[in-house]
């Protein structure tokens, strides 16, 4: 309801800036990771990927899901629609690169912090997370009651942000696909179809959880399905990024095309293995 109210009555910059500023609470994980004093040598060694010693199917399932979630199609739709909402023009090409790199980098950095805290708090107790209820221990362990509330705050803000982002991304995609009026800065009466689309998008998953589907299982399943759909979303970029009709002189150079090609091949590989891994290692 809160996410819906934010989308229905708020503006794009209110959602963007509000959730981003509140999201800084997740820096608590970085502080916790440093305070728990990890073995920095082991941390450095852990940065180099290595093959798992047990449960390889489950390991690869998680790895593929994370890759799928990191380069998932909705990010492209949301980010590019946001650029239109904020009326970016060609002068934003430079800032755009900085924003994208810092944004993804900061997200990755926070994910590493969460992994380090999980390794230091949960692994020694032999806890293997298969339920959301086990998660508050991550911050409750170093900080007690305060940590519990900090964790609750992190979960609340990140869920609110993700909910708003995904609902908007889907509504953008559908409205642009059908050529409707759309825009978070328009009043709902000016883009009724767009506003009602994100409203429906918010209600349907809520109903799925209310009828008893496990949110954690639903998340991992949808991450695998996202991974499987990646090539459909990424292959068009190879064509689009070289189309002078749309991009004028700003088409990809050889390096850009090579990157897109590598990501496309990666997406293809991820798509092929995602469903078998979901069956073998998903549970």
């Amino acid at each position: 309801m809160l996410a819906w109210g934010l989308l229905w009555y708020g503006t794009f910059s209110m959602i963007e800036n509000g959730v981003s500023i509140l999201g800084l609470i997740t820096i608590a994980f970085v502080v916790a990771a440093v305070r728990l004093g990890p073995d920095w040598h082991a941390f450095g060694a852990g940065l180099i990927p290595s093959l798992p010693s047990k449960e390889p199917a489950h390991y690869w399932f998680i790895a593929v899901s994370i890759l799928g979630a990191s380069i998932s199609p909705y990010l492209f739709y949301f980010y590019s629609s946001g650029a239109i909402e904020e009326k970016w023009d060609v002068t934003y090409l430079g800032p755009n690169r900085v924003i994208a790199a810092i944004g993804m980098g900061f997200g990755g950095f926070l994910s590493i912090a969460v992994l380090v805290v999980a390794a230091l708090v949960l692994a020694p107790r032999g806890v293997s997370v298969d339920d959301y209820h086990q998660l508050p221990q991550l911050l409750a362990s170093p900080w007690g009651r305060v940590g519990f509330f900090l964790f609750a705050g992190c979960l609340f803000v990140t869920c609110l942000g993700a909910t708003a982002e995904i609902a908007l991304a889907l509504a953008y995609q559908i409205a642009q696909g059908f050529g409707w009026n759309w825009g978070e800065d328009l009043e709902p009466r000016e883009d009724a179809r767009f506003s009602l689309t994100y409203s429906v998008v918010l209600v349907v998953p809520m109903l799925l959880v209310l009828i008893g589907l496990d949110p954690l299982k639903l998340t991992t399943l949808s991450m695998a399905l996202t991974a499987a759909s990646l090539p459909v979303a990424i292959v068009p970029f190879l064509v689009l990024m070289n189309d002078r009709k749309y991009l004028g002189e700003h088409t990809n150079g050889w390096l850009g095309n090579l990157c897109v090609l590598i990501i496309t091949l990666l997406a293809g590989a991820v798509a092929v293995v995602s469903i078998p891994l979901e069956i073998i290692g998903g549970s």
Binding site: W8, Y9, W180, N181, E187, P188, R189, D191, A192, R193, S195, L196
Partner: peptide, 17 residues
Amino acid sequence: ALERWLRRKIVCRIPWS
């Protein structure tokens, strides 16, 4: 037509819309 119908039947009935 669909935009007008949704606006009249649903959106305008939601307070402050």
